[in-house]
C-alpha cells in the first residue's frame, strides 16, 4: 500500500514538473537589431536523379555558403528591412560526367531587399543586384534563406500552426509557381548549443508548376514534394539559431521544340542553416 502511494506521489511530482513547462505558452517572433549583420552557415546537399527511357542518371551536389542578413531598419508598421546576400558559395558536384568544384563568384554580394514582419512573413521583396535569370540560377534572385513563419497566436508545446505560401519565380522567359503548405509544431523548450531555444518541427507539402521557353525549346514542369524540418529558435533574442530541412521533390520536365522530351526528376535535399 505504501509502495503504491509512493508511486502515485512520484507520478504526481513528475506530472507537476512537466505540466508547467507544457502549459507555458509562447509568442514567437523575430527581433533583428538594426545595422547588425547575421551570418548563417548554409549547407545544401542535393541528390538529383533523372530518368530517360528507364535509365537513371544521378547527380549529387553540395553547396556550402555563408549567408549574410543585415537589418537596415524598421518600417512604420514595425516590419524589418533586411538585406540578404551571399558572402561565399562553393558547389561540389558529382555526376556521370565527372566531379567538379565551382566557386560561385557571380552570385556573391548580390543583394535582395526584404521587408519581413515580426512573424517572419515576407511582405515585399526587391532584387537589388539581379543575377541573369536562367534555369540554373533563377533561385539566386530569391533570398537564400527562407525564414519559418511563426504563429499569430501564442503557442503551447504540442500545438501547431499552418502557413500557406505561394511564390512565383520568373526564369528563362517563363514563370514557375511554387506552393507550400507548412504545418509547424512547437515541441517545447530545449537547450541548444548552450542557448535555451524553442524547438519547432515542420511538415510541408509542396507543389511546383510552370513553363518557360529558351531558344525554341518550350518546356513545362510539374511536381509535388514533401519536407520535414527541425528548427531551434532563440525566442529571447528573436533569432533563428538553426534550421534543418529534409525535402523530397518529384517533378517532371517536359519539353517541345528542338527536342521532345519528358524527364522524371527526383530531388532529395537537406538544407542546414546555422547562425554563426
Amino acid at each position: 500500500m505504501k509502495n503504491l502511494l509512493k508511486i502515485a506521489t512520484l507520478s504526481a511530482i513528475v506530472l507537476l514538473t512537466a505540466f508547467p513547462a507544457a502549459a507555458q505558452s509562447y509568442k514567437i517572433k523575430y527581433n533583428f537589431e538594426t545595422d547588425k549583420s547575421y551570418l548563417y552557415d548554409y549547407t545544401m546537399t542535393n541528390k538529383m536523379t533523372q530518368e530517360v527511357m528507364g535509365n537513371e542518371m544521378k547527380f549529387d551536389s553540395e553547396l556550402n555558403a555563408i549567408i549574410r542578413m543585415q537589418k537596415q531598419g524598421d518600417t512604420e508598421s514595425g516590419n524589418s528591412i533586411l538585406i540578404t546576400s551571399l558572402d561565399s558559395a562553393t558547389v561540389k558536384t558529382s555526376s556521370p560526367m565527372g566531379d567538379t568544384t565551382m566557386v560561385m563568384t557571380d552570385m556573391l554580394g548580390k543583394r535582395i531587399k526584404l521587408e519581413i514582419s515580426p512573424l517572419g512573413k515576407i511582405v515585399t521583396r526587391e532584387v537589388l543586384d539581379s543575377v541573369e535569370a536562367s534555369l540554373m540560377n533563377a533561385q539566386f534572385n530569391r533570398e537564400t534563406i527562407s525564414l519559418p513563419e511563426m504563429s499569430e497566436n501564442e503557442i503551447k508545446p504540442g500545438e501547431s500552426w499552418t502557413v500557406d505560401k505561394v511564390d512565383s519565380v520568373e526564369t528563362a522567359g517563363g514563370v514557375f509557381i511554387n506552393t507550400s503548405k507548412n504545418v509547424y509544431t512547437l515541441v517545447g523548450k530545449e537547450s541548444y548549443k548552450n542557448y535555451e531555444c524553442l524547438k519547432i518541427t515542420s511538415v510541408s507539402e509542396l507543389t511546383i508548376e510552370g513553363n518557360a521557353s529558351m531558344q525554341g525549346f518550350d518546356f513545362v514542369a510539374e511536381g509535388t514534394g514533401k519536407a520535414t524540418g527541425t528548427i531551434y529558435f532563440d525566442n529571447e533574442k528573436g533569432l533563428l539559431k538553426e534550421m534543418v530541412q529534409n525535402m523530397e521533390l518529384q517533378f517532371n520536365l517536359a519539353g517541345t521544340g528542338q527536342q521532345n522530351i519528358i524527364i522524371p526528376i527526383t530531388q532529395e535535399m537537406t538544407n542546414t542553416y546555422t547562425l554563426k
Binding site: 527511357m53 513553363n211 513545362v220 510539374e222 517532371n252 519539353g255 517541345t256 521532345n260 522530351i261 519528358i262
Partner: peptide, 12 residues
C-alpha cells in the same frame, strides 16, 4: 498529367 503536352512525348 495536368500540364505535359501530348507532343512532348519523345520519339523512340
Amino acid at each position: 498529367s495536368k500540364l505535359i503536352p501530348e507532343d512532348a512525348l519523345p520519339l523512340s
